[in-house]
Lab assay of single mutants.
Amino acid sequence: MIVFVRFNSSHGFPVEVDSDTSIFQLKEVVAKRQGVPADQLRVIFAGKELRNDWTVQNCDLDQQSIVHIVQRPWRKGQEMNATGGDDPRNAAGGCEREPQSLTRVDLSSSVLPGDSVGLAVILHTDSRKDSPPAGSPAGRSIYNSFYVYCKGPCQRVQPGKLRVQCSTCRQATLTLTQGPSCWDDVLIPNRMSGECQSPHCPGTSAEFFFKCGAHPTSDKETSVALHLIATNSRNITCITCTDVRSPVLVFQCNSRHVICLDCFHLYCVTRLNDRQFVHDPQLGYSLPCVAGCPNSLIKELHHFRILGEEQYNRYQQYGAEECVLQMGGVLCPRPGCGAGLLPEPDQRKVTCEGGNGLGCGFAFCRECKEAYHEGECSAVFEASGTTTQAYRVDERAAEQARWEAASKETIKKTTKPCPRCHVPVEKNGGCMHMKCPQPQCRLEWCWNCGCEWNRVCMGDHWFDV
């Protein structure tokens, strides 16, 4: 396979590697080409510095992935760790964990309700045991953590790749202090920090972006993250068709209702045909949960890209028209025109101005929308079919299609509260000796007794199943 190397943020060049090629071997190839010592090179990928003893497969490097290699003399205490030698983080029983690669970060837990604080980093599902597709590297999971809308060759929703760059020099040479644990960490600028490894760059702020994971991409090709779309790892039924499908869209209502993408497309087109989208002054033209839940309008309007190009163009047109109407304007009634106009409040005669090729020149009556006339309008008909009709959803289907309910059931079956801080902690095999993952707590306690870890627990039921 081919990976592209950008040395000291210059133009990239291809390097041929195998899945079992080590990072140090990659350094040696680059060092020979650039005429520099291999031990002064640092390989940066997806916000993480890659260790010498890791392989291309370990690092989730795919065909035509772009890695950054910078030349920086080692500072005291760094060289041993980078070589894969006596790194205290690798000691058996050590409590410190390697910062998780962005290629394996899962933010789907952050669609849980606000009262489930902490689960994004504490609760991990076991539903990723799908067998890898044919042709994928051994052991590589097909679980997708992110979804994007690819405006490039795909023109559809695709699995996405999370990447990070330095907000100062805009190069992907920043190593994160810690990985993101929720969508806010990724979507809110300057929320996460790190250290830029580019020479002479003092940058410390992280800037995240997404790429389409279905095809090789260049540095400049980015895609918009659709953070309401998630892999259906909890096997929730769709609120409309009641099938279990994946991926799904999880509405931001209190129940976190789930809808499959085909039904979401149908829901949007139906509402669009009836012009029953909601115009929100802050958000724009949007839709609420299909069950009509309060405070559930979709905030990231790129989710409506699921409509496809033709329907999305209609959505944008109707949204612009609705904006004009909300501002007190009118639409030209001549067939084939429909231009938005903003006449004076007491102006009865409205002319669709033909300047700049935008208007048709038609003069019409503001009251009856017919060709302009003197005197009273002959008839004014009330528009028919403008009443909002509820999208029919079966109550039982709505009850079963809740992301929140599956989460709470998982928590109930696989977790116990920490005796000190009461945060839910998952036990997935292993011994009875637990350690609270909350940095402010870190209590060592017994899963069996529910009390602080002691010699009695150690001698009596340390390794009970």
Rank of each mutant, 00 (worst) to 15 (best):
G340L: 04
A371I: 13
L301H: 08
T103E: 14
L50W: 02
G213I: 06
A363G: 08
L41A: 00
G179T: 05
A339V: 14
P335Q: 08
P132G: 12
N52V: 00
W183K: 01
C95M: 14
P437S: 07
G375C: 04
V29Q: 10
K32D: 07
D62C: 11
V56M: 13
Q34K: 06
Q25V: 04
S378L: 08
V186H: 01
S22G: 03
Y285F: 09
G375W: 05
A46H: 14
R348F: 05
L342W: 10
H124N: 14
R455G: 15
N232R: 01
I23R: 00
P133I: 10
T387S: 13
Q100E: 12
N90C: 11
I229L: 11
E395K: 12
L443Q: 08
L301Y: 07
S10Y: 14
F362M: 08
C169M: 00
Q57V: 06
A320R: 10
G375A: 08
D18K: 10
L176K: 02
T388D: 13
G77M: 13
Q78L: 14
Q389H: 14
L272F: 02
S116V: 05
R33T: 05
V393I: 13
V258T: 08
S407M: 09
K161I: 15
P417M: 10
S286L: 01
L358W: 08
C166S: 02
Q78R: 11
V425F: 08
T175V: 13
K413M: 11
Q63F: 07
S10R: 04
S145F: 03
C451Q: 15
T83Q: 14
G354K: 08
E409R: 09
T388W: 09
C154H: 00
L176F: 07
N235K: 13
C436Y: 01
I411H: 10
P189H: 05
D280P: 00
C431K: 05
N448D: 08
L174G: 00
D464F: 15
Y318V: 04
Q282E: 12
Q165I: 15
D219L: 07
C154T: 01
C377H: 04
C95I: 13
H433V: 04
P180Y: 01
S10V: 04
T231H: 11
E382I: 14
M327D: 11
R314D: 02
F7D: 03
M327Y: 08
Q400A: 14
P14Y: 03
A120L: 04
V324P: 03
L41G: 01
E370G: 06
N448Y: 05
H433F: 05
S19R: 11
C154A: 01
P202G: 13
D87T: 11
Q316E: 11
D39A: 07
S108G: 11
T387P: 13
I306Q: 03
N8R: 01
I259C: 05
D394T: 06
L174R: 02
F210S: 00
M432W: 04
Q25P: 01
F264R: 00
P437C: 06
P247R: 05
F463R: 01
G160E: 00
L297C: 06
Y372M: 10
M458I: 15
D219R: 07
D346M: 09
N232T: 00
P419M: 05
C449T: 01
L123C: 13
R42I: 11
H461F: 00
F4Q: 12
A91N: 13
E79R: 09
N273W: 05
V258Y: 01
V43Q: 01
R256G: 06
Q282M: 10
G328F: 03
R348A: 08
T125Q: 13
S109F: 02
F277L: 12
E16F: 06
D460H: 15
C441V: 02
W74A: 14
P439W: 05
G12P: 08
C182E: 09
V380E: 07
S233Y: 11
L26H: 00
K76E: 15
N448S: 08
P199S: 08
P99L: 12
P424A: 15
A225T: 05
L41T: 00
E79W: 10
H461Q: 02
H422V: 05
P73F: 05
Q40R: 06
T103H: 12
C352T: 02
S205P: 02
C150Y: 00
K349P: 04
C446M: 01
H124G: 14
G354P: 12
K435D: 13
T351K: 07
I236C: 06
P424R: 07
R392I: 11
T125R: 10
E382F: 13
G359L: 06
A230E: 03
R392E: 09
G94N: 11
G429I: 14
F208E: 00
A397I: 11
E16Q: 10
R128L: 12
S296W: 03
Q158M: 14
F210A: 02
Y315K: 02
G340N: 05
G35C: 08
Q64A: 13
D464A: 15
Q282I: 12
P37M: 07
V3A: 02
H279F: 13
E353W: 06
P14V: 02
L176D: 02
S193I: 11
V290G: 02
P159F: 08
F4D: 05
G77Q: 12
Q25S: 07
P439F: 08
A398K: 15
F277I: 05
L301I: 11
S131G: 13
C323Q: 15
E309C: 09
S384D: 08
F251K: 01
V43I: 05
G429D: 15
G385Q: 08
G194S: 06
F146C: 04
S384K: 08
D39H: 07
T351Y: 08
T168H: 08
I66K: 02
K408C: 08
K435S: 07
I188A: 08
C182A: 08
L358E: 15
L41F: 04
